[in-house]
């Protein structure tokens, strides 16, 4: 017998065209609500979370330099979100740390592509594999429409994305400090579907993503009474509609948790 909240979430998820998967869990991993949790979804910009994890991991392994300045080159530039796309070829430089910030805060695709080149796509996937995550894969750079047409998509599932966010919330990705640092970057202010469904005074570490037909968001809601992870993924529909539903679902979940606590 489903709880009224679970039922309501299903209703909301079914209220728009396309497929919506989600997983809501306490930070200890206990799943509260889920749907299509093992369905593979394109991730759009949410895949930048595993990439950020790899950057920090390689930094800790002294494989990359957090303060190295990288030239902004035409070959990395990708449209869509961000600002580095507007920069002149080879005229400016930016350090690794700032690339990470831009990748998350502005979802800058050029910064993302520069970081992918820096750490290597295979390394990101190996890191996911080492964490037991078999469905979360970075398979193309941002805005590579040819690759997308070939079916080379950046993917994950609600379950694996939720595991990743729980891992970070538990301080178990490398160590507590690195996990905290990563969450600190995700926490930087931005407007997202989940963020819009949570009272402003509650911190949310989150990364959304959207491409035509797809919307995703991975979030840790740092509700002091009961921190929890919320992952939403939608495909084969309208990203705008998905995001509106994600906000509504978030409100519904948060109210429920707030009442329980």
């Amino acid at each position: 017998m489903q709880s009224p909240i679970a039922q309501r979430l299903q209703e909301l998820a079914g209220s728009v065209p396309g497929k919506i998967g989600y997983q809501i869990a306490r930070v200890d991993g206990e799943v509260l609500y889920s749907q299509l949790s093992d369905e593979v979804f394109p991730q759009a910009s949410a895949i930048k979370v595993p990439l950020l994890m790899e950057v920090l991991a390689q930094r800790e392994e002294a494989k990359i330099d957090w303060n190295a300045a990288h030239p902004i080159l035409k070959k990395h530039q990708a449209g869509g979100s961000g600002v580095l796309f507007e920069f002149s070829d080879g005229c400016s430089q930016i350090c690794t740390q700032d690339l990470c910030t831009l990748m998350i805060v502005l979802s800058d695709n050029t910064a993302t592509n520069m970081l992918i080149e820096l750490v290597g796509m295979a390394s990101v996937n190996q890191r996911m594999e080492s964490l037991g995550l078999t469905q979360t894969r970075l398979q193309r750079v941002m805005m590579d429409m040819d690759a997308r047409a070939r079916g080379e998509e950046n993917v994950s599932t609600p379950r694996e994305a939720c595991q990743i966010m729980c891992l970070l919330a538990q301080g178990k990705f490398i160590n507590q400090e690195i996990s905290d640092e990563l969450l600190g970057i995700l926490r930087k202010p931005k407007s997202t579907a989940i963020r819009n469904g949570i009272p402003a005074e509650i911190a949310v570490a989150t990364k959304p993503g959207a491409i035509p037909g797809v919307a995703t968001e991975w979030a840790l809601i740092e509700y002091p009474k009961q921190p929890y992870v919320a992952v939403f993924m939608g495909k084969e529909g309208s990203e705008k509609e998905f995001n509106e539903v994600f906000t509504e679902m978030t409100r519904c979940i948060h109210e429920s948790i707030d009442k329980k606590e």
């Binding site: 002294a62 990359i64 330099d65 303060n67 190295a68 300045a69 990288h70 030239p71 080159l73 080879g90």
Partner: peptide, 28 residues
């Protein structure tokens, strides 16, 4: 070789690592 730059101030002798083509410089 990829244009990446690392600053060094204060006269600190440093060992760096990079790829064989001189790309991906990092302090070691």
């Amino acid at each position: 070789s990829d244009g990446r730059r690392i600053k060094n101030t204060g006269g600190v002798g440093t060992i760096y690592k990079c790829k064989l083509d001189g790309s991906r410089l990092t302090r070691w």
